[in-house]
Amino acid sequence: MTGGDRQVFNNRTINKNAAPLNGDRARIQGEDTRKVKAPDFAYERPESLDQVFDLLERHGDEARILAGGQSLLATLNMRLSSPGLLVDIGRVPGLAGVARAGQTIRIGAMTRHCDLAAAPPVQAHLPLLARAVPHIAHPAIRNRGTIGGSVALADPAAELPACCLAMGATMVLASRGGERRVAAADFFQGLFRTVLEPHELLAAIEVPVPPAGSVAGFDELARRHGDYAIVGLAAQGVPAGAGWQGLALAFFGADDRPVLATAAAAVLAEGGGIAAAQAALDRDLDPPGDLNGDPATKRHLARVLLGRVVGAMAEGR
């Protein structure tokens, strides 16, 4: 910036006045005289997993992990959540990145959505994730949001938990005592509930490399691009004649957690066709109504999605 520009834009340069703005002292002490929106909380930024475990053990349920923050910050701003302590894991080394080891692809919990979709092992082997990521919110949110945050939050209408279910992923839960592994099907326990214990951190997600010939399908219905889905479907399987091998249909937005449609998948596996699978879907899904639609609407939309997604997969699209 030139001196002349500085003159011209003087009213837009940073205020260098050392004196606190009116109200600053109150704000810093958490007694804001203006409208600070988030509730008061403490904040720690550990730089190692050991420090994370220290904080989790010391603060228990009071501590919330801050990963990408793209859901948590919104709930804080709206005062829908009031943790005593935020544990910002953004600078803990080793938590981000995607790497293949044998037949497993390990995705670090702090891998951001934008990096996930672009990661070579994802591009080469996990097309389901590459298809799903563009549906997550908007570019600026994908630049910050993380897979671990999405999975640990367990929003039933979120894309990545359903993808994990469809891919047969395993959650790696780290604590002072070491790691334990939980299948995606067992990890999600209900609305924003998982098996994560207060002293544990979701460290990574391990995804088996799909067998040769596997195809993926993903779609969702939302009122606006980037909104949470009314209903969505993440699917993966290997075409075999008129049927399928290892077909997994994971619906989201259709219950209090992502749901595997096993009856519909069994019909398709045996070559029963899409119409029969759509009929079988009533045995798999029992969607509660919400602001986006009543149960009958959601069942209808799920059938529509099944037809679109599986139809596209069968045609190799």
């Binding site: 929106k37 930024r45 701003n77 910002d88």
Partner: peptide, 29 residues
């Protein structure tokens, strides 16, 4: 909106566009 929906707060942090309302100032340290 301050909940990440409207995009009016979009700024660049370390070269990428982010929602300024969904990031704490301390995270920008």
């Amino acid at each position: 909106c301050e909940q990440g929906v409207c995009g009016a707060c979009t700024v660049r942090v370390d070269g990428v566009a982010v929602r300024g309302c969904l990031m704490l100032a301390v995270q920008a340290d």
